[in-house]
């Protein structure tokens, strides 16, 4: 094992509960720089929470999140801001600003955090919209005027625009037709392979997982129950993964609930 590589991002002993049973129980997970990790797992198992904890949007009850080996909690406000300037996030629900047009959504970081002039920011936004297969005609529409799949792609464009180091994708292909979905998969793959981004994605779409992932981790009952290379998804005899991949109603996942 090449353990000498410092992970780009690491969850170390992270626990979280809301009112009810724990969502994450001592979760350990790491991604090496320039690799693509896909998290799979049943609905409501805490995949989105895992990502939001890494982004600092939800506080963990205990445990650490490390970026480049440094505990995020030890950062000063300025260091934090600097690190998170290079982090992108696609929210599961899109989370587009409904008072802003599509291009202003996509260029939000450029205009408001990087102070890029609006003309230039608009040109960049149009470029990135092209990458997610949206034409210039949608640029001046508002999010409420778009279909669900279009909104998702606008969210995706917004997540990748600032040349981020780490990108989180929460269900990037849900609600997309197969052709658009494979284009999006290719785009995510390209961010990792060509631009050297580290990507953490959540998906229920196993075809997508096989394309995007270098590695896959399965989250169940607040822990990682399996972790392996993308190709191992179909060969492993881990009962959780088998049940999940085969989509059987009966198995360890059912029995645990």
């Amino acid at each position: 094992m090449a353990e000498q590589i410092i992970p780009k991002l690491e969850w170390r002993g992270v626990s979280k509960r809301f009112d009810g049973p724990p969502v994450l129980a001592d979760l350990d997970l790491a991604v090496a720089p320039g690799r693509s990790l896909v998290i799979i797992g049943g609905s409501g198992q805490g995949k989105s929470v895992t990502i939001k904890i890494a982004l600092g949007l939800i506080p963990a009850d205990s445990g650490q999140v490390l970026i480049d080996g440094v505990d995020v909690a030890s950062f000063s406000a300025a260091e934090r801001a600097q690190v998170f300037e290079r982090v992108g996030m696609l929210f599961q629900g899109g989370a587009l600003f409904d008072s802003l047009s599509v291009w202003e959504n996509v260029a939000f970081r450029l205009i408001n955090a990087e102070r890029m002039p609006r003309r230039e920011a608009r040109a960049r936004a149009l470029e990135v919209l092209g990458l997610v297969r949206l034409g210039a005609h949608v640029a001046d529409l508002y999010p409420s005027e778009l279909s669900g799949g279009m909104q998702k792609r606008v969210g995706l464009a917004r997540a990748i625009i600032g040349q981020p180091d780490i990108i989180f994708f929460d269900e990037p292909t849900t609600g997309l037709d197969p052709i658009t979905a494979s284009a999006i998969n290719a785009l995510i793959r390209d961010r990792v392979s060509s631009l050297g981004c580290t990507a953490v994605s959540i998906t229920h779409d196993l075809a997508s997982a096989r394309t995007i992932a270098d590695e896959i981790a399965m989250l169940h009952q607040g822990r990682i129950v399996w972790r392996g290379g993308a190709h191992e998804l179909d060969t492993t005899d881990n009962p959780y993964v088998r049940q999940f991949v085969d989509g059987r109603a009966n198995g360890p996942i059912n029995a645990d609930v």
Binding site: V87, M89, A95, L96, F97, D98, F108, R109, N112, R158
Partner: peptide, 25 residues
């Protein structure tokens, strides 16, 4: 209602991930 709706639809979280402080913006 405007800020509450933004909170409910994660727009405020999104703003934070886009390096923009919701208190300032």
């Amino acid at each position: 209602s405007e800020i509450g709706a933004m909170k409910a639809t994660e727009q405020i979280d999104a703003m934070v991930t886009l390096s923009t402080d919701p208190f300032r913006y």
